[in-house]
Amino acid sequence: MSIPTHHPFDFDPTQGFDLDRLRAIRPPEAAPGFDAFWQARYERARGLDPQPRVNASKTSHPNWLVQDITYTSTDKFPIGGWLLLPREGSVKRGLVVGHGYGGRDAPDFDIPVKETALLFPCFRGLSRSRRPPISTDPAWHVLHDIDKPDRYILGGCVEDLWLAASALTRLYPAIAGRIGYSGLSFGGGIGALALAFDKRFDRGHLVVPTFGNMPLWLTLPTVGSGNAVQTYQKTHADVLKTLCLFDAAVAAKRIEAPMLMAVARFDPAVAPPCQFSVANGLAASNQHEIFILDAGHFDYPGEQEQHALLSAKVGRFFGVT
């Protein structure tokens, strides 16, 4: 297998980095006050009752009981999503599943886990959690309140994830300490920020995570949300002061739970050096595994085979009791 050689973009989605350079890149230093900023937010979020409410869903599946779920996040923001319960066996673990910047229209039924309650929240402003004046367009969503660090939308999304863990443990107290997280792209970056400060998650799986190495993220060509922020920066030169507080690579250095990270060598939407900055930020440990994809956010030969291998690893990773 190899990275794609033909593509329609006017830039190189590898950003000119070979695998050795990608493996060598490291996260930037933490912004002043990074830990205090997030620890205070986490403590406030942990003190809230998410008041989860579940109802039968119109969606059905032979292996899963599908329920619609809502819970209350910070700022009394209503979060909507889906809860899947196994039709066979008891609930012994929990798994919160984040989504990419395209939002989510339905839960994923092919996650290879058993005896697990799966919570699929929609981050604030998106899909089942849409609410004006927040735009559902990623190019505008990523800019929402970017000039106010305490109000920036990414921070609220991290809090939505923390409250998702609270909602699961309210519904199933016995799974406390056995909750995992899986997040793709946008959900990967948000997941790194969340797991760095919430020890209730006992393991995490991040795929092509964004928001890593923000100083670099602002300089590399992309078709993703970074492009909107780069355009914004042209008239707001101080935006990096906010973004440095939301750096997923800096957060990764603080994650203690075992991690299964999937990063891509070629990606037009999330620059590979930024992805690898997140993966390389994890402490050197045999409890972490880095799985390298040929490409992300792009169809490529061998994609199904690579993702089948990754799926098998996911099943083993979250299959622990």
Score class of each variant (00 low, 15 high):
S2V: 07
F11G: 04
D12H: 09
Q15A: 13
F17C: 05
F17Q: 06
D20C: 01
R21E: 14
I25Q: 02
R26D: 00
E29N: 12
A31Q: 12
P32N: 10
G33N: 04
Q39P: 01
Q39Y: 05
R44A: 15
R44Q: 15
A45Q: 07
R46M: 15
L48W: 09
P50D: 10
R53W: 03
N55H: 12
H61T: 06
H61E: 10
L65H: 13
V66G: 02
D75L: 15
K76L: 12
F77E: 06
G89E: 09
S90C: 02
V91E: 07
V91Q: 04
L95T: 09
Y101E: 13
G102N: 14
G102W: 08
D105F: 10
D105K: 14
A106K: 15
A106Y: 13
F109M: 09
V113L: 09
E115H: 14
E115A: 12
L118G: 04
P121G: 08
C122L: 05
S129D: 06
R130C: 11
D137W: 04
A139W: 01
H141L: 11
K148P: 00
R151S: 13
L154V: 13
G155R: 03
G156S: 12
L161T: 14
W162R: 08
S166N: 14
A167F: 03
L168M: 09
L171A: 10
L171H: 05
A174T: 14
A176C: 08
G177R: 09
G177W: 11
Y181V: 05
L184Y: 12
F186G: 01
F186H: 14
G187C: 10
G189I: 02
L193N: 08
A194M: 06
A194E: 06
A196R: 00
A196W: 06
K199C: 05
F201V: 04
L206Y: 08
L206E: 03
V208R: 06
T210F: 05
F211M: 13
G212E: 04
M214E: 13
P215D: 08
W217R: 15
L220D: 02
S225P: 11
S225M: 15
A228D: 03
K234G: 01
T242Y: 03
L245C: 06
F246W: 10
F246Y: 15
A252Q: 00
R254W: 01
E256N: 12
P258I: 02
M261S: 06
P273F: 09
C274K: 01
F276I: 00
F276R: 00
V278L: 00
L282Y: 00
A284L: 00
N286D: 14
N286Q: 12
E289Y: 04
D294P: 05
G296H: 09
H297G: 02
P301W: 09
E303N: 08
E305M: 11
H307F: 15
L309H: 11
K313Y: 12
G315T: 05
G315V: 08
G315N: 10
T321R: 14
